[in-house]
Nucleic acid binder design. Structure first.
Lengths: 240, 240
DNA sequence: CATGTTTCTGCGGGTTCCCGCAAGCCTAAT
DNA sequence: ATTAGGCTTGCGGGAACCCGCAGAAACATG
């Protein structure tokens, strides 16, 4: 069994290397890649079926890399190894995992014990392992308490990109009013209101801009998600 | 000479510890803090004058911590040690550094040699050391090519927070029209226009929302800057 | 002082946004 | 079949936005 490590920070990379060797004495060679781009190539050439992947890398996002890898070989086992449990990441990962695939999501701050356990569970036992904190996030995320449906999330991204209602309607094949209704729901779930703190002056907040920041502050959105959405938008614009 | 290390990632922390010992054999004890909060406390109790500080930590931002430390003892020497050279960080640091203080900004990706050199230059020679990439950013930032004046930057933050023109005018003591003029400049510098890609449909972009995303994508804004601006805004709202 | 340059300000209009109201569709349950 | 609750859509109006035009104020320069 070979293992592929995709991680841009050299310190973390060598730490992972060490831990993999300890946790899986039976494993063969350990390949290393320092960004998603390179990770995809190595996964293809070495037919790696066991991958430890960082999210948030310079050249190419971990989620992007995982997606193309899984598209080619859906039975690949991937352990995501991340600094943060942002909802944007969790959502991004759970959106791309193929049916029945074994994967894991552990935080970099977990203990060595847990990391080793996760490595063995996923690579040997073929079981999913999700860190407690991350799972908590998932629960909250997909429940309806302040949780967003996929279509709402889509439109949240659209306004984050700066699209007009009209353009969103075109893109998502909805009427203008429906888009605005969705925005209404988003505003209420995000608890953004036109707080006229002092009655004398009018609204203090532009709701659509405010919603985006609140979403960022709540880690519903982050840079990676934005970047991905932006390239998708550009694609759509080209395709008219 | 004592040194204080403020860094939340244990791997990086121990690496720094090692490098400091190697680069500064003459130094005494090395204290460690794992977030900004703790860093401030340790700096105060140990009267540390030599600090290596990570930006981007959970409990309290490196910039925030540095500001309060410098406010108490402006001659403290701080080496910032960061993953990124985002303009938002560079701007944030250069905004708080006291006159004549020795400081440094090096990326985590630099070689050990350079790190050691930076440590000696700042802590022994009392010289400023700014990484090449960061300096390039500084040049571009404070030149007028797509560079923002401080007042423009202020207002960019305000719309990023979701404030209305009216509210911004109140806050910055400007007329409504002046705020809108500034926005005009911001839009043009960010090159956001109402690209009516296809003549049939109207504007595809809401300029103010679009400007914020473009700024994020260009790393003019980032999560830390947003968070800081948000607390300042809440403060202002309270103070009426 | 006269002059030009830059910034600030008010006015007015066209467009977009925010949202209450109400009428239509669909699914599900009584 | 009827009723109820949920989406979706249209209409309409008030508020906020985007922005051209032009005068007023602030500042520098000769």
């Amino acid at each position: 069994m070979d293992v592929l490590i995709v991680e841009d920070d050299p310190l973390h990379r060598s730490y992972l290397h060490e831990q993999v060797k300890l946790a899986l004495p039976e494993c063969g060679t350990i390949h290393e890649a320092e960004n998603g781009q390179q990770g995809e190539v190595l996964a293809r050439t070495h037919r790696s079926a066991h991958i430890v992947m960082d999210l948030q890398m310079n050249a190419r996002n971990g989620i992007e890399a995982a997606r193309t890898i899984w598209r080619e070989r859906p039975d690949t086992r991937i352990l995501f190894w991340s600094n943060y449990a942002d909802e944007a990441y969790v959502r991004g990962v759970s959106r791309i995992v193929p049916n029945g695939a074994a994967y894991g999501y552990v935080l970099k701050s977990t203990s060595e014990e847990r990391l080793k356990l996760a490595l063995r569970s996923i690579f040997i036992e073929n079981q999913c392992v999700i860190d407690n904190e991350v799972r908590g996030m998932q629960q909250r995320s997909f429940a309806q308490t302040s949780g967003f449906s996929d279509s709402e999330y889509e439109i949240l991204m659209d306004i984050a990109l700066g699209m007009t209602d009209r353009a969103i309607a075109d893109r998502r094949h909805l009427s203008l009013r429906s888009v605005q209704n969705r925005l209404q729901q988003i505003y209420s779930k995000l608890e953004v209101h036109q707080t006229t703190d002092h009655p004398r002056n009018a609204a203090a907040f532009n709701l659509r801009a405010r919603a985006v920041t609140v979403a960022m502050l709540r880690k519903l959105l982050n840079y990676g998600a934005l970047e991905k959405a932006e390239t998708e938008l550009q694609q759509w614009l080209r395709g008219h």
